[in-house]
Structure formats: structure tokens, C-alpha cells
Design a protein around this nucleic acid. Structure first.
Length: 244
DNA sequence: AAATAAAACAACCGCCATGAG
DNA sequence: GCTCATGGCGGTTGTTTTATT
């Protein structure tokens, strides 16, 4: 028997968050942290359940969230990590700084999965990819703090990956199912190096700053092991003569 | 311009793991 | 050692947005 839904029973509010609710939640967390999600909404005066608050914070309001479309590199990393980890979205998210498990999960289900589907599905997509993410979520969090306005800015996101996006001039070709999923030789060494770096330093900094507890060491070690293995494999591909 | 279909996104639900009492 | 409360995760659904007809 599952636990009763926490929000409905108490007559708490559900559905989309308003900017005002966002502001209250962020202000409260900045001031008091989030040691107890259950108690948080009451303390903050939010008519929400703790679970809802937690989700909102983790997925959208955290200052270190990177918004905007996934770059090609990020998508490829997700695919590769998914091959290694399966549907362990949180583990995958831990390797992609600024991306949340929910976001990754959505991206996976909306286009990455399709990209990997066999060539049988050759119909061209009816829609072109979205130009940019809808700004509402950004504007929700943006006014809250200077930190957020920086980290949640769509433009800053694109600048983060400007180098990568510059190589995406032919992005349309990637969206075609006819396109074989081919990884540039130099890609994995870059992407995985980034992932390892961030796991070694950046991610821990980011997580530490916001009180998130790091995943179990064994899990991290496992993933790091595989990442390094892939890096080595990639290097071998790049310069086989070295390893021959 | 309106209707429709599809994609993208945001949020919720239910289960599981873990820690405190 | 057991029970309960809580946090966290993955799956799923509902809503909104956008492209196409």
C-alpha cells in the first residue's frame, strides 16, 4: 500500500508554480537551507507539499541549473552514459553539470531515443527542433537573485557551449533519422574529459554549495572507472599506433 | 486563419532506500 | 531489530507550444 498523496490530502496547491511561489521558495532556501523538505513549505508559508518544493528547487530553481537546449556534445554524452548506466537518470545527471535528471529524462524520451532508433523510422520529423527553450521558466527564477539570473540565462547557456554550438551549423542533419549516429573521433576525449573533470571538482563544488549529498562513493567510482575506460578507448581509436 | 498533430516541457505519483527513534 | 518518516529516484501523465495542413 502506497503512501497517501501528500499534497491533495492537505488541500495543498498543485500544478504549475507561480513566480511568486518561486521567489518565496528560493528566498527561504537561501536563508535557511533545505534540511527538512517536509517542514519547509510550512516554514516558508507555501501552500505546497515538501516533495513539490524539493522538485521545483532541484529541477528549476537551483542557481547552478543550466537552462537552454542540450548541445550536441551533451546529447552524445547522455547517450553514452545511458548505455553505461541505463535509466539511472540521476547518475547520468551527476555527470552533466547543470543538467537535472528530469531534464535529461525528458530529452531522452523526446529525441535521443528516436535518434537511436533503427533506420526503419525514416519519416522526417514533422516539427523542427525548438529554437530556444520557452523563457517562462527562466524568467520565473531569474529575478530571484543575481546568481540565478546569470546561471539561468539562456544566452549564458549558449555561450557556455559556444565553441560546441559553432560546430553545429549542420545541426539539422543530426536530427534526421537517416543520419547514422557517428561520433567524431575527438569527441569522446573532450566530452568525457569534461565529465570526469566536473565530477572531480566542479560538480562537487556545486553540490556542496547547495547541500546535495554526493552519490555513494562506490557508484561514483564505478562510473569514473567506465568513463576513464571510455576515454582510454577513445584515445586508442585516435592514435592506434601508440597502443599497437 | 483555423484546426490538427506532434513535440517539448513541467509536474505528479508511487516505490524504494535510508536513517532516526 | 523494528517501525516510521523522509528524501530521492524513475516512470508516467497533463499541459503548453509549435509546425504543418
Amino acid at each position: 500500500m502506497g503512501r497517501a498523496p501528500c499534497c491533495e490530502k492537505m488541500g495543498l496547491k498543485r500544478g504549475p508554480w507561480t513566480p511568486e511561489e518561486d521567489r518565496i521558495l528560493v528566498a527561504h532556501i537561501e536563508r535557511h537551507g533545505h534540511s527538512n523538505w517536509r517542514a519547509l513549505p510550512k516554514q516558508a508559508g507555501l501552500p505546497r507539499c515538501g516533495k513539490s518544493c524539493r522538485l521545483r528547487w532541484i529541477n528549476y530553481l537551483r542557481p547552478d541549473i543550466k537552462r537552454g537546449n542540450f548541445t550536441r556534445e551533451e546529447e552524445d554524452a547522455v547517450i553514452q552514459l545511458h548505455q553505461m548506466l541505463g535509466n539511472r537518470w540521476s547518475a547520468i545527471a551527476a555527470r552533466l553539470p547543470g543538467r537535472t535528471d528530469n531534464e535529461i529524462k525528458n530529452v531522452w524520451h523526446t529525441h535521443l531515443k528516436k535518434r537511436l532508433e533503427p533506420k526503419t523510422a525514416t519519416q522526417a520529423p514533422k516539427r523542427k527542433p525548438k529554437k530556444q527553450q520557452q523563457p517562462e521558466a527562466v524568467t520565473l527564477a531569474a529575478p530571484v537573485s543575481p546568481e540565478q539570473s546569470v546561471s539561468t540565462s539562456t544566452t549564458s547557456t549558449t555561450t557556455d557551449y559556444s565553441a560546441a554550438s559553432s560546430s553545429l551549423e549542420n545541426a539539422d542533419s543530426f536530427t534526421s533519422e537517416e543520419e547514422d549516429y557517428q561520433i567524431d573521433d575527438s569527441f569522446w576525449s573532450e566530452t568525457l574529459a569534461m565529465a570526469v573533470d566536473s565530477s572531480d571538482s566542479g560538480m562537487e563544488e556545486a553540490e556542496g554549495a547547495f547541500g546535495a549529498s554526493p552519490p555513494a562513493p562506490s557508484t561514483n567510482d564505478d562510473v569514473d572507472f567506465w568513463l576513464k575506460l571510455f576515454m582510454q578507448a577513445s584515445d586508442m581509436q585516435n592514435s592506434p599506433q601508440i597502443y599497437a
